[in-house]
């Protein structure tokens, strides 16, 4: 700490002062001009609220949203990893058709805005799939049943299960393209000699991939995959557009009903920041 202070120049002090002054000015202008009434004291109530009928503290909007975001992120990253490995392997396949299909999928995802992709996947895949599988009725059945603790621990409110699943699928499909590219790069970073050695002891292409190439490739792609995981946390806010009750969606609800625009969004931002920054610090430490 001492050393950092020593490095500070008087110019740094001036810059800091200007930044603080500017921030303070904007804050007071908002107070004066918008007549904004800060109500930070209300926020904790939207994290946890006391439910008299159960005599317990239960998560309210913001925490529900946070938990949903965490669930969606975890499930979709697992699914994206599986799809991404398949896609990555397909990208380097010897079969031209498979390679071209993978390339088409990837280029589509890369060159269309995420929001558009999410709507397309949502309407054409998730929604159809969910009604086709009769998932709605099944989830409601579980929601009404007695022993649904495990279910609600894993998936939150079971009545919203179909929405959660659509969110997970849509996000995973979207992220799989990027995971796939990372995997492909990892596979191609394994020296050609490794494949030749595997082949020369009589391994089939499948064995070569499974025992020799993928283990080495996956080890190399852990750092970029970790970054992609953080990106996924942030991208998960996009699923609020298709009414998945994640943190962003819940914040919209909160803001709409209470007009606590800044408090609500600042809190949501803080949650996202803490998760993403915390993860990136964690990954940096693990890399060493």
């Amino acid at each position: 700490m001492r050393r950092i202070l020593k490095k500070l120049h008087w110019m740094d002090a001036v810059i800091l002062l200007v930044v603080v002054a500017l921030g303070g000015y904007i804050a007071t202008r908002i107070g004066a001009e918008l007549n904004y009434n800060w109500r930070w004291d209300k926020i904790p109530n939207y994290l946890y609220r006391y439910k008299a009928s159960e005599d317990a503290w239960v998560p309210n909007l913001l925490m529900q949203g946070l938990f949903a975001t965490i669930r969606i992120t975890i499930y979709s990253s697992i699914l994206a990893l599986i799809l991404g490995v398949i896609l990555g392997v397909a990208r380097v396949s010897e079969n031209l058709t498979i390679r071209m299909l993978a390339r088409t999928y990837l280029e589509f995802l890369r060159n269309v805005p995420p929001v558009v992709i999410i709507f397309i996947f949502f309407f054409f895949l998730s929604e159809q799939l969910i009604s086709a599988l009769n998932m709605e009725r099944w989830a409601r059945g579980i929601a009404r049943s007695e022993n649904n603790e495990i279910w609600s621990f894993l998936f939150g409110d079971m009545r919203r299960f179909p929405a959660l699943i659509s969110g997970v699928i849509v996000l995973a499909l979207f992220e799989s393209a990027f995971v796939g590219e990372i995997i492909r790069a990892g596979i191609q970073s394994v020296p050609k000699g490794q494949r030749e050695a595997a082949r020369s002891i009589g391994m089939s292409r499948g064995q070569e991939l499974r025992y020799i190439v993928l283990p080495q490739a996956l080890k190399k792609v852990i750092p970029p995959l970790a970054n992609q995981f953080i990106t996924l946390v942030k991208d998960s806010s996009l699923v609020s557009l298709i009414s998945v009750p994640d943190l962003t969606f819940k914040t919209i609800e909160l803001v709409a009903s209470t007009r606590m625009i800044f408090e609500g969004w600042f809190t949501a931002a803080a949650f996202y920041f803490v998760i993403c920054f915390g993860l990136s610090m964690l990954f940096r430490r693990l890399e060493r």
Binding site: G202, I212, K219
Partner: peptide, 20 residues
Amino acid sequence: LRRLRQEVGMVFQQFNLFPH
């Protein structure tokens, strides 16, 4: 081809051992 490769061993200039 796989039967063939089981008849023929090969030693490479760069060793190509499996590092993992």
